[in-house]
Computed example of a mutant assay.
Amino acid sequence: MTNLQMTKNLHVCLSPSLLPLYKVDEYIAVIIDIFRATSSICYGIENGAEAIIPVAEVEECIAYRDKETGFLLAAERNGEVVTGFDFGNSPFSYTKEKVGGKTIVLTTTNGTQALHLSRSAKKIVVGSFLNLTSLCHWLKAQNENILLVCAGWKNNFNLEDTLFAGAVVDQLKSGNYKTDDPAIAANDLYQDGKNNLNAYLAKTSHSERLKKLGIEADIAFCLNVDITTAIPVLHGQRLIKLQ
């Protein structure tokens, strides 16, 4: 087999609105929503959540209240918990005490939307700084095209998701991957910010939104690197721990 035949694609989709430009079914998709959905999902699965069911709309989340018992319902819009739900997407709501052995139904402004738009992928996994290295080790072993899907903010580009995509590219670039321009740009951003993620991402628009809500601690927590090893993977309708 020639090197050309062995080359895999490592691409970055900078916004869910750009997904129609990709043949998503040819990739493993990594969903990225650093502030805060994918960080909370990784933390919850690490802490023993049986499953997290991502749904696109608040109404879908409400429907689970009627058809299932014992589920925790989590809904976030514009950075705040939707009234009437158990919690939103703060990582501090996904501790062992709260989610261990539980199934959570989750809808968020950006992350769950990006996931649903990526459903045609060969496989969907969830990434965050919390599980960065374990995720990258697994991706290296798959011998598949990889699409890093940045959830962004309401279909716009955002810095934190792109920076994380760059961190993944940085760990995978020694492999036999063909990168696209967004992947190269994301890696360049990561090189600028990797020595102090908190300082670099303090200027992001979403961190400013969260600060106004008084939840700076969430931002700091989401920038912890490699404090978990669990990789959430979509199995049917549920995100579970990859075995």
Rank of each mutant, 00 (worst) to 15 (best):
S205Y: 09
L139H: 00
I227C: 04
T133D: 07
P232N: 04
R209N: 15
V149K: 06
A220R: 15
D218P: 11
D181V: 12
A202I: 04
I124M: 05
L115S: 04
I215F: 01
F221H: 10
L223H: 13
N224R: 15
S207V: 09
I146K: 14
V225S: 07
N224C: 05
I227G: 02
V125N: 05
K194H: 13
G127H: 02
K211D: 14
N143F: 09
K123Y: 06
H116N: 11
L130Y: 10
K194W: 07
N145S: 06
A185L: 15
A186S: 11
L189C: 13
A217T: 14
T204E: 11
I231V: 05
C222G: 08
I124L: 13
A121P: 10
Y177N: 08
N198H: 14
N196R: 13
L115K: 12
P182R: 07
N158E: 00
T229S: 14
S134V: 11
R209E: 15
D226G: 08
A114K: 09
G152A: 06
N176E: 03
A220T: 14
Y177T: 06
I231C: 03
Q113H: 08
Q113T: 00
S118P: 02
L197D: 08
G214K: 13
L223N: 04
D218N: 09
I219Q: 09
K178T: 02
H137W: 06
N131K: 10
T179H: 04
G111L: 00
N143E: 15
A151K: 06
A114G: 02
V125E: 03
F157A: 01
R209I: 15
Y177H: 12
N196A: 13
T179S: 02
D180S: 10
A183P: 03
L201K: 13
F221W: 11
T179F: 04
L189G: 01
L148T: 03
L223I: 07
A186R: 11
V126T: 06
A220V: 14
T204N: 04
S134L: 12
E208R: 12
I231E: 01
N131H: 08
L197W: 08
K212G: 14
N131I: 11
W153I: 04
A220I: 14
S174D: 15
K178D: 07
N155F: 09
H137P: 03
L159M: 04
V126S: 02
K211I: 14
W153A: 04
T112A: 00
L135T: 00
V105M: 09
K154Y: 01
D188S: 10
A202F: 09
G214F: 03
N196H: 13
N145E: 06
E160Q: 00
E208W: 08
R119I: 07
N131P: 07
G127T: 04
T179G: 02
L197Q: 10
D181G: 02
K123A: 09
V233H: 03
N224A: 08
Q191I: 06
Y200V: 12
G214T: 04
N187Y: 07
L163V: 07
L106P: 03
K211E: 15
A141I: 11
S134G: 09
L172F: 09
F157T: 03
L172M: 03
